[in-house]
């Protein structure tokens, strides 16, 4: 299966990646190629096979409800692009 540019543009937006026209064309080509590879999967009938989400057949371990973390805001925000009054700053969010 090959992808068209519109689809690639949509995917890029879902993934929040800005592409210029040249990139859009290049990705449309290479993603189509990769999809060709992926679709080789169809050679195998997987009817009735249980999907495998984890490599180990294990169950979730549950942690006791205890507070073990301390305030590290200063350390974490020293590496932030923009902060003020302890908040991370981003361009205005409109609801």
């Amino acid at each position: 299966m090959s992808l068209d540019k519109d689809t690639v543009e949509k995917i890029a937006h879902l993934a929040r990646l800005q592409l210029n026209e040249q990139e859009l064309q290049a990705y449309t080509d290479s993603l189509s190629q990769i999809l060709g590879l992926i679709e080789q999967m169809n050679a195998v009938d997987t009817t009735g096979v249980a999907p495998m989400a984890h490599p180990q057949d294990t169950v979730l371990r549950l942690r006791e409800d205890r507070i073990e973390e301390t305030d590290q805001r200063e350390k974490f925000q020293r590496i932030s692009p923009a902060t003020e009054a302890g908040l991370y700053l981003v361009p205005k969010v409109i609801e």
């Binding site: 690639v8 995917i11 993934a15 993603l31 999809l35 999967m41 195998v44 997987t46 249980a50 999907p51």
Partner: peptide, 28 residues
């Protein structure tokens, strides 16, 4: 970016079963 887009596509509405779920079955 290429892999992010492949993955985004494989999980997107309408393609999940054909790609992601199929791959998980094959994985088994």
């Amino acid at each position: 970016k290429r892999r992010i887009m492949i993955g985004t596509y494989a999980l997107s509405a309408g393609y999940y079963d054909a790609y992601y779920l199929k791959a998980q079955k094959l994985r088994r």
